[in-house]
Nucleic acid binder design. Structure first.
Lengths: 83, 83, 83, 83
DNA sequence: CCAACTGAACACGATC
DNA sequence: GATCGTGTTCAGTTGG
């Protein structure tokens, strides 16, 4: 056996690698979360209402999702017609 | 007036900039979320139990948080004594 | 019709009962919250630093959660091996 | 000294008692939280939309708070007149 | 005013 | 494939 394995047939090294990759990514994600918080903080200092800002962002996200849905629908129609 | 403002005295351009920065960051964050999902998917294909993996990651995160809290607590104590 | 129903086919009486049960429980919970607040208040009057107390409680809670998660993880492993 | 004290002048026994009382109360509170969850679960099984139920409960709570505020205001007025 | 805690919404995976 | 339960994440509230 080239690779060390436990009785369960689990390659611990590979598992560890997976877990570390995920932990690394989660750290990055948390870092970005901190960045976002900072931007809100800046905006607040500049006198903006962050609660409203959040609403704006949420609405824009929904609109975007809507538009993408519409696009998908359009594609569907076009494909249907193209047949 | 050098900068265009609405009646509310809000600098719309600056607000827009803040919002766009946040939206950019949120996109990045979502991208990383997708990456994480992929790694789990890979691990699953390699025969690992993702449920267990998640639990392991959660415990490791809690351990880490625990240690950090202990440090904070120590600092608190020291400050309290220092008074 | 034995039971009065609205046009939506919803048994209003039963719904009301559910909601009242929940509201009752939420009141109880709020009451306990008030009790907790009082204890903190007492402790503060006795000269203790509530900030430190909260941190201690938080850490103890995390430790406990940690231990429970470890147990769950062990169970998961055993089940995985048992297959 | 009747009671054992550390150098910081902290009565550890009393502190411990406070913390245990709080932890006990928090457990009770968590128990009630679990009960609430169960009721929602029951309601769901009975075919009710829990999301809407939550809204109803929230609105009723706000109404109640409103009414209490009105009562306080009324009391204030009555007291003012009574003087 | 900042930070922690709580509760709600969402998204994902598991199961039938 | 759809529904169900669960876990994660986000917004709101409260306390320091």
């Amino acid at each position: 056996m080239a690779v060390k394995k436990g009785s369960g047939g689990v390659d611990a090294g590979r598992l560890k690698s997976f877990i570390q990759r995920i932990e690394k990514l989660e750290e990055e994600r948390a870092g970005i979360g901190a960045d976002i918080k900072e931007v809100f903080s800046e905006a607040k200092s500049a006198g903006y209402d962050t609660k409203i800002m959040r609403q704006v962002i949420r609405i824009r996200k929904m609109d975007k999702a809507d538009r993408e849905e519409q696009d998908e629908l359009l594609t569907l129609y076009l494909n249907a017609v193209g047949e």
